[in-house]
Design a protein around this nucleic acid. Structure first.
Length: 699
RNA sequence: GGCGGCGUAGCUCAGCGGUAGAGCAAGGGUCUCAUAAACUCUGGGUCGGAAGUUCGAAUCUUCCCGCCGCAACCA
């Protein structure tokens, strides 16, 4: 029985089109899976889509599709992108494209629910209990109101709707809860006990400190009337499973947990997994997932590894508003897949964020791939053709010729090169096993430099003119070629296509994916092997031309992207759905009457004082003159976008009859109106072009 | 303001108690097998600032400044 290895990407949330984040995580997982296969593991590689939840429903509505059509569309697009980048099964990529709408997943996740419910928490309580998701409901609004959205009039105990000025009904949506609060001690102990469990270390500490801050029980269901698109809770038709329980369980249901999908796969065989996730969803994959697994009596993952995010070339977050997004279509159109893979793995350093720019990518590809690896292959093969009729010569130097070899600066028995390579190979394996891809690759590039130097020092073009140096020349060529063989075997996981091509050009077969780097032995390359047909493996990229093409095409690409408008959630990364907590049933229609509108008292105010609130990143404190006896103190989350001093004297629109509310210990007596398109978008404060009187009412 | 991290050559970073390093970029030289490639020489950087511990600090301590992450605070 071969050792098994199970690697997963997150299943990507099917409300947004594929992007660089999806591509990156999948490339990394693919590289690991190829590497582990070479190392002799029986590997199972999972990726896929998370297809339930209210955000999918909304995205579907927005695009005039049924939820099913929506998720079919997105998962289709993802598969298409993966195929383009050679990550699909047809290219030896993922083994399963998991979809949470598969019937077997329904069975499996429901089974998981039942198993969790059977057990007790580490503190001896019921794991799942039925509770109430209490809320105040305004029937006319058809909406739950949160604490910030209602007010309690004097002399009444019942909250009132600020829009309809009527008492709210206390409605409790029934919900199942997972007793997460009982898992804190266990989580801390478990995570601390195994340094491999949660990586890298900085992230591990973050999670630990989060858990130490205390955990709240987790609502793990929604009422079907509110969210219908999901896996039904077992034995309770009225409820649907909360997305994270549903989504996370995919990692085991895909292996046949709780369903009859099995055959070659199986929980016993492949579980536990190594999960590769973006750092933004780390908490779900640790705090929640670990607890669910523990509750169900299952083993925890071997490792949850949180990788960094890609920033743009200047180190800023990528976003539509900034227009600095790397488009996967552009990558595919202008770059070799292997160059993209190399860049992704070389440029993102272990656990840190990376910068991704087309220019940086070109520089890397030209320096490392074209001038480095590609050129080494090219000069080596060219000399073999020219000097040795295309046959790989023997690397052996007879002792009588040692003196000549030494004169040419060559180590006669080649021991030095061999030890350099062995060392590099061990280092490569150590780094790769540790997911330190960047350093692993760096190690190999020192080898390339070393061999380039060997060639330059030995000067084959002079050796060829001297009969006595025939063996020295042979040795140079043999060592260079043998090094290329080693390199290509090690690089296969990172650049499958290019590695295979180098291998072929050396004149070897195409079983490279089966060769274990650890088993490489110097000298296995047979002298006399005719090299294959050669051509440039990494053609040099014309930087100015390609950059030109990209920048020309760019505005078009981003324009069509925005009109396509498939995205709803602004979540940059993978598999992330914001907590469904407290989100309310949708309103029937969007019209309000003039009376409704007039209930909102909008007044013109002049900002007298504006300053940052200490201890708060986003909060500004204003004193606004509304023409009343006292200026109002108003707090607003604008600190990230406005310089307080510049706002003083500005006339703004204030919601004057908003229920006062305390924030950061300060009472906010109103609200300053500002416009923004999305959460991410920077807001613009509403102002007047004409001179208006302070206190004037807007209607 | 809480917790954590970072600040070292133009850029990316390594070094983490004993006289400042690597890669890339730039400039000079050599060479021609090669994808204008490779090889080679060239970096005089207050190691963010200040104070302290020490025979000795980029390396330990404290304070300050500036970034970033997590959490909290906005709609």
């Amino acid at each position: 029985m071969p050792k098994t290895f199970y690697i997963t990407t997150p299943i990507y949330y099917a409300n947004s089109l594929p992007h660089l984040g999806h591509l990156y995580t999948t490339i990394v997982a693919d590289a690991i899976h190829r590497y582990k296969k070479q190392r002799g593991f029986d590997v199972y590689f999972l990726t896929g889509t998370d297809e339930h939840g209210v955000n999918i429903q909304r995205a579907a509505e927005k695009n005039d599709r049924t939820p099913k059509e929506q998720v079919d569309y997105i998962s289709g697009e993802l598969k298409r992108m993966f195929a383009e980048f050679g990550l699909g099964p047809e290219n030896g990529g993922y083994d399963i494209f998991m979809r949470t709408t598969e019937p077997f997943h329904y069975e499996g996740s429901q089974h998981l629910w039942r198993e969790i419910a059977k057990n007790k928490t580490p503190k001896g309580n019921e794991t799942i209990y039925k509770g109430f998701y209490e809320g105040w409901f305004c029937a006319p609004c058809a909406e739950f109101k949160t604490e910030e959205q209602y007010y309690v009039p004097d002399g009444s105990k019942t909250p009132h709707c600020p829009i309809h000025e009527r008492p709210l009904d206390k409605v409790a949506e029934e919900s199942y809860f997972f007793r997460l609060s009982d898992y804190d001690d266990w989580l801390i102990e478990t995570i601390e006990a195994d340094p491999k469990l949660l990586r890298p270390e900085a992230r591990r500490n973050e999670v630990l400190s989060f858990v130490r801050g205390g955990l709240q029980d987790l609502s793990i269901s929604r009422q079907k009337s509110a969210v219908s698109w999901g896996v039904p809770v077992p034995d309770d038709e009225d409820h649907v499973m909360y997305v994270w329980l549903d989504a996370l369980s995919n990692y085991i249901t895909a292996l046949g947990y709780g369903n009859d999908r099995g055959g070659s796969t199986g929980v016993q065989k492949y579980w536990p997994a190594v999960h590769f996730v973006g750092k933004d969803i780390l908490r779900f994959h640790t705090v929640y997932w670990f607890s669910f697994l523990k509750a169900a009596g299952l083993e925890l993952p071997k490792t949850v590894y949180a990788h960094g995010m890609w920033l743009d070339a200047d180190g800023r977050k990528m976003g539509k508003t900034l227009g600095n997004v790397i488009e996967v279509d552009v990558l595919h159109q202008h770059f070799q897949v292997d160059a993209v893979r190399y860049f992704a793995l070389r440029e993102m350093v272990f656990g840190q964020d990376g910068k991704f720019g087309y220019e940086t990518l070109i520089d890397r590809a030209n320096a490392d791939l074209a001038s480095g690896l590609g050129n080494l292959a090219s000069r080596t093969f060219s000399m073999i053709s020219k000097y040795r009729d295309g046959l790989i010569p023997s690397g052996k130097i007879a002792e009588d010729n040692y003196i000549h070899a030494r004169r040419a600066g060559m180590d006669p028995d080649g021991g030095e090169i061999v030890s350099v390579l062995k060392h590099a190979r061990d280092e490569f394996i150590r780094r790769f096993d540790n997911f330190e891809f960047s350093q692993a690759l760096e190690t190999l590039w020192t080898v390339i430099a070393r061999i380039d130097k060997m060639i330059s020092d030995a000067k084959p073009w002079e050796l060829v003119k001297d009969e006595k140096q025939s063996e020295t020349l042979n040795a140079v060529l043999y060592r260079a070629t043998e090094t290329l063989r080693w390199l290509s075997v090690m690089l296969y996981a990172v650049m499958p296509g290019a590695a295979r091509e180098i291998y072929r050009q050396i004149g070897l077969g195409d079983d490279i994916e089966k060769i274990d780097p650890a088993s490489l032995k110097w000298g296995e390359l047979q002298p006399g092997t005719p090299i294959g047909e050669t051509s440039a493996i990494f053609p040099r990229i014309d930087k100015s031309k390609v950059m030109n093409d990209i920048t020309k095409a760019e505005p078009l690409a981003s324009a069509s992207e925005t009109t396509a408008d498939t995205e709803t959630a602004p979540n940059a990364s993978v598999g992330a759905e914001p907590s469904a907590d407290g989100s309310a049933p949708e309103t029937r229609d969007n019209f309000i009457t003039i009376d409704d509108f007039l209930k909102v008292e909008l007044r013109v105010g002049e900002i007298k004082v504006a300053e940052r609130v200490p201890k708060a990143d986003k909060l500004l404190r204003f004193e606004v003159d509304l023409g009343e006896d006292q200026p109002r103190q108003i707090l607003a989350g604008l600190a990230e976008y406005y310089d307080p001093e510049k706002l003083i004297g500005r006339k703004v629109v204030v919601v004057a009859n908003l229920k006062p509310r305390k924030m950061r210990g300060l009472e906010s007596q109103g609200m300053i109106c500002a416009a923004s398109l999305t959460e991410e978008d920077s807001p613009a404060i509403a102002t007047f072009l004409e001179d208006v009187k302070i206190g004037a009412r807007l209607k």
